[in-house]
Nucleic acid binder design. Structure first.
Lengths: 294, 294
DNA sequence: CCCCATTTGAAGCATTTGTTACAGAATAAT
DNA sequence: ATTATTCTGTAACAAATGCTTCAAATGGGG
């Protein structure tokens, strides 16, 4: 990975140096400096040969300029340029405002939160809108029946998704954790079924086996996994990768939950009419059972 | 929903190719892809050696990936990345900030994500570090037994917390959803017990009733609730307020999960030694049961 | 006109890079 | 368990890159 200059108060160090030295440059160096500044800092990221050619000078000139600017050699200058470009390009999609002053949070908590924010950002960035749409669509289709299953850690995510889907639409099933009863669910799956699987790090072979069995039956498979990708990625029709790494012994499933919640919102919107009826009916029933209870 | 559109000529060719091929990547290639996407596109502008090192793979793997993406070799891919970076940098800064350019996400998705980020930010800001520490401490104390319970929506959060706590320490119980069996748990609760309750909007009276019964028995009560505060707030010893509102028919429990995950990390660290033993033992047992199964 | 200082590129060299071939490792499939 | 298949790193190689040396330009002052 690129190491971020820790001291990036000014991000355009090379440019400044070029300007400072502008008077002390020789004609050939000036040609070079010109090219360097023309589409700064990218032009400096080519090989020394190409750069020299582009400026119409020789390679030693490039090295001499780099030295004049205080670098050890060309690669060092290039590294500086790369860091600058990296800093410029970094796009905070959704930034968390600087950490509030005077808080006494432990650094650990802080790091944890920062990591989570990074994960969410990157997950959104890597998410293919088309995939999201396709998944939302297939899950909103009431012609299809839906089956959900999570792993050891992700079972809660599956449960959360199930909990909401079940309220929004009919035909939703949460598979039991024990593989020995899966055949009973499998037999009900067909081309009009959707199997939503959650499988992150420490991928579970049982899940993969189930996925391929389901695939054989023509089931549409939606996979939620981590950045590295469960082996089920190959079997699945739609794959959603979420970043899960945080400074902890455990993985964070927040990014997965973000997508799940966004999907719930999308699906709900998509079939607003039917859903509201359904929810009202449910509310009524909840009230009734409450009356039962006391 | 995200709107699909005709393929606009986007500048992020390599990224697209990476996403397209995501399913067909081998594990090592995925490591590499991860590094490539992490600080895209700059990380790909290093030498092949550095890049391979950063990803923890060998240089041939880099070449193989480049070929898989349709490039002739590594330099070709790098040139493509350089062009992309160049194109991005030329854009006015204003255009680069905020939501990434060229994404076809719907405004709905965008709003949702922004709301979630706001929630997380504000939740952290409102969180009293002292409360956090106190809760972490009380939950790390193995002298105490822990009981967890969630509501209709938050049951998954309770389950997630339970799932991890149970691995880290002994004496953790997840209460059933049905109130009629709660007395059986209540009878085991005392001054050395902790009851963790999740109760957000549409506060459930049953939960409140349980809380006060537990309180009478001297149980320490930890409450996760929303920004408005469940009625249990008065009974509880420690209250954690998380923002839950998003543009959806449903509340978002992401902020709650953030705190839960942070707590898990904190607790784990706090009793690292014992926990690791325990986890190793568990791993062994998991392996054994796997053997049973097949 | 010659000398000296400075600038510059050509040529050559060591190093690093990008690539290929191959064999050990890991998986999956009998 | 054994085999076949796929994956992946090591090692050797070729091709550049980055650098050094040195001599040819250049360009003022005497």
């Amino acid at each position: 990975m690129l190491q971020m200059g820790a001291q990036v108060s000014r991000s355009e160090i090379v440019k400044d140096k070029l300007k400072d030295q502008a008077g002390a440059l020789t004609p050939a160096e000036r040609l070079l400096s010109d090219v360097l500044l023309r589409d700064y800092p990218m032009s400096g990221l080519q090989s020394i040969t190409k750069l020299a050619e582009a400026a119409g000078v020789s390679t030693p000139t490039v090295i001499r300029l780099a030295r004049k600017l205080g670098f050890d050699g060309f690669p060092e200058m290039q590294a500086a340029l790369r860091d600058e470009a990296s800093a410029q390009i970094k796009k905070p999609i959704l930034k968390r405002e600087g950490w509030p002053q005077g808080r006494k949070d432990s650094p650990a908590f802080r790091n944890f939160a920062e990591a989570v924010f990074d994960n969410l950002n990157q997950t959104i960035e890597r998410l293919d809108p088309a995939t999201f749409d396709a998944v939302a669509e297939v899950l909103a289709d009431t012609q299809r029946s839906i089956f959900l299953l999570g792993g050891r850690i992700t079972r809660s995510n599956a449960d959360y998704f199930f909990n909401h889907l079940q309220i929004i639409r009919p035909g939703v099933t949460l598979l039991s954790q024990s593989p020995n009863v899966w055949p009973q669910y499998l037999i009900d799956m067909g081309p009009c079924s959707v199997l939503v699987i959650f499988d992150i790090r420490r991928y579970e072979t049982d899940l993969a086996r189930l996925a391929s069995l389901a695939k054989e039956r023509g089931v549409v498979i939606v996979l939620f996994t981590d950045q590295w990708g469960s082996p089920i990625s190959r079997t699945a029709d739609h794959v959603i990768n979420a970043l899960v790494e945080v400074p902890s012994s455990w993985d964070s499933t927040l990014a997965i939950n973000l997508i799940v919640e966004a999907l719930i919102a999308a699906i709900q919107t998509q079939r607003l009419e039917q859903a509201t009826d359904r929810i009202e009916a449910l509310e009524d029933m909840f009230l009734s059972t409450r009356i039962f209870r006391k």
